[in-house]
């Protein structure tokens, strides 16, 4: 039992992080707090993807080289999986840009209604 929990300990951490972010997204009324929850959620997803590429006893996915020449034969078991790194590298930049767009929309909402509390917005509509 304890071996099972330890061998999957990384997934427990991501599930807990995702629950924190999800709870903030659906229960908070403040739009900025919702955004912070969204960012925590995305961080959990990114960490999950990165952890699928880990191999025990492997090094970073850069071939051993000297002056641009390979100095030892490449075996797939020696290097961690580069594919999740690539996908999450672009996902992080996209996360930053979507956060920027969301913040701009929150600023425009504040301009129009003078509040960012979700339950106060319908009262201000006329």
């Amino acid at each position: 039992m304890i071996d099972y929990v330890v061998s999957k300990s990384n997934y427990w951490i991501y599930v807990v992080l995702m629950m924190i972010g999800f709870y903030a997204m659906i229960s908070k009324k403040n739009l900025i707090r919702k955004l912070i929850g969204l960012n925590i959620f995305q961080t959990a997803v990114i960490l999950f993807f990165i952890s699928t590429g880990v191999k025990k006893g492997a090094t970073i996915p850069i071939a051993f080289h000297e002056k641009g020449e390979i100095i030892r034969a490449i075996e797939a078991l020696q290097y961690t999986n580069p594919l999740p790194h690539v996908l999450m590298l672009t996902a992080i930049v996209v996360m930053i840009s979507t956060t920027g767009v969301a913040l701009s929309i929150v600023i425009k909402i504040y301009d129009a209604y003078k509040t960012i509390e979700e339950d106060e917005i319908p009262d201000k509509e006329e």
Partner: peptide
């Protein structure tokens, strides 16, 4: 794009 997002949000003045 990074500087654009930062400048657009930081230098915005509410009406």
């Amino acid at each position: 794009i990074m500087i654009t997002i930062f400048l657009a949000i930081a230098s915005y003045e509410t009406e």
